[in-house]
């Protein structure tokens, strides 16, 4: 299974809307009304949710918290279905001009596993943001403040 197969599966279940795939560059609507962009680079075996958290100044408390949250996902005390195993995947966050992208570099795991994992990671990142950064979610994603 390819990354596209995995995403296509979500699209045909109706979870992803407006699904578009153009040579490893995928666009869709999922949570939060904002189009999301996922890139798969087979050369570097890297899968990235591009600019998934906009307007987060680098080295800000929120930036640091996102990074700490991601490192926590590799922790050995997490159950396997919730863990990003560092032996298989390297989980990373990049902040370019205050746009945070979150991705996985494959070491050992498969392309399909990586796509499933990253979808779950992004889901969990947004759970964390809803829980910890309510005003941010309100301002950037129109979530209710109340």
């Amino acid at each position: 299974m390819t990354v596209e197969d995995v995403l296509q599966g979500y699209a045909s279940r109706g979870l992803l809307r407006n699904f578009q795939a153009v040579s490893g560059d995928f666009g869709f609507l999922w949570m939060n009304h904002k189009p999301m962009r996922l890139q798969w680079k087979p050369q570097t075996r890297t899968l990235v949710f591009r600019d998934v958290a906009p307007n987060v100044p680098s080295r800000s408390p929120m930036d640091r918290e996102i990074r700490a949250f991601l490192s926590g996902l590799a922790s050995a005390d997490r159950p396997p279905h919730r863990r990003v195993d560092p032996a298989q995947f390297e989980l990373f966050a990049e902040n370019r001009k205050s746009q945070v992208s979150i991705g996985l570099r494959l070491k050992d795991g498969s392309e399909a596993e990586a796509a499933e994992k990253l979808m779950l990671v992004i889901h969990e990142v947004f759970l964390m943001l809803h829980d910890r950064w309510l005003e941010y979610m309100h301002e950037e994603f129109g979530a209710s403040l109340e």
Partner: peptide, 8 residues
Amino acid sequence: AGEFAFPP
């Protein structure tokens, strides 16, 4: 979608 914490 996304409002309940269950995974995709």
